[in-house]
């Protein structure tokens, strides 16, 4: 607690800087002029000292609130107060290469810097624009939230009614809301429901709610299963075998009838040939016989 007040304007720039750091105040951009430091010093440190001296509790609370606001402000130095070069440097610090900052472009770059300084998107200035950009999801979310909150409030109100009136008519709506989600739970007058923890694996005698598929099979059994899947049932195998046998028999029968015929024909021709020789011999004999008969 300093006993004497120093005019911050008389302090050196480095001293101001160190004071600001000591009071955990965000420093302005490096190129800022001394005036900026002095301003910050006056704003934060002197106010804090004043708060230290004051014994009024309420005043302190208000001061703390003020300080928080100031800290937020200090985090975001007003871009409009910067010079063109400072603005450009500040933008470059945030990784944005600004073009020439002239009268017509300055406003845009100031806005850009403000946006860059608040990457969380909690800025009320940019809120509307971001709302436009992300309108779809955000609005839906908000609506959903509002809806759920409304539902909660409704149920709370209704449960209050049940407490007050203790009639069954007002208990019905409470059931409506929760019966959908937890059909097993019973409506309580407070509207607070404790749901039993669901069993995980049916342990400790609880009913099995979810049966795991077969335990992972070993590679050999998997292979066997694959082979079995590929094979056809045994009845069809037998049937096909019988069909094949019948076909083979039929072919064999046909072949026996027809394709051996060349041999049969050959044999027959041989037989016929021998017959022919016999036929040729016979006339000779017949020729001989007349001669013989003539000789006789």
């Amino acid at each position: 607690m300093p006993l004497f007040e120093e005019d911050p304007a008389h302090l050196s720039k480095s001293r101001l800087k160190s004071d600001l750091v000591a009071h955990s105040v965000a420093l302005p951009p490096a190129q800022s002029k001394k005036d900026v430091y002095v301003e910050l010093h006056l704003k934060h440190i002197d106010q804090k000292n004043a708060a230290d001296f004051s014994s009024d509790e309420e005043d302190q609370v208000r001061d703390v609130a003020d300080k928080e606001e100031d800290a937020e402000d200090a985090e975001i130095p007003d871009p409009s107060g910067l010079t063109d070069d400072d603005l450009k440097a500040a933008l470059l610090e945030h990784g944005f290469k600004a073009g020439p900052i002239v009268a017509s472009t300055r406003a845009v770059y100031e806005k850009k810097l403000r946006k860059l300084l608040q990457p969380d998107g909690q800025d009320h200035l940019n809120g509307a624009e971001k709302g436009v950009v992300y309108s779809d999801s955000e609005e839906e979310d908000e609506e959903e939230e509002e809806g759920s909150q409304g539902a909660k409030e409704e149920t709370v109100e209704r449960s209050d009614q049940t407490q007050q009136e203790s009639s069954q008519l007002s208990q019905e709506p409470v059931k409506d809301t929760f019966k959908d989600m937890f059909p097993d739970t019973q409506a309580t007058p407070t509207g607070i429901h404790a749901t039993r923890r669901k069993p995980i694996k049916g342990a400790a005698g609880r009913p099995i709610q979810y049966v795991y598929p077969d335990t992972p099979a070993s590679p050999t059994t998997q292979e066997r299963r694959a082979v079995e899947r590929r094979l056809v049932p045994i009845q069809i195998q037998i049937l096909v075998f019988l069909i094949v046998v019948v076909l083979l028999y039929l072919i064999y029968a046909c072949v026996e009838d027809n394709s051996f015929s060349p041999f049969v024909a050959l044999l027959e021709s041989l037989n016929q040939g021998s017959d022919g020789e016999e036929g040729l011999l016979l006339p000779a004999e017949t020729q001989d016989t007349p001669a013989l008969s003539g000789q006789e």
């Binding site: 290469k97 600004a98 073009g99 020439p100 002239v102 017509s104 472009t105 406003a107 845009v108 770059y109 806005k111 850009k112 624009e129």
Partner: peptide, 19 residues
């Protein structure tokens, strides 16, 4: 000209034009 001053940055240009 404004578009070129903003270094042909569409995002910034859109912001400017909206404003």
């Amino acid at each position: 000209g404004q578009f070129l001053l903003l270094k042909k940055d569409s995002e910034i240009f859109v912001e400017w034009l909206k404003d």
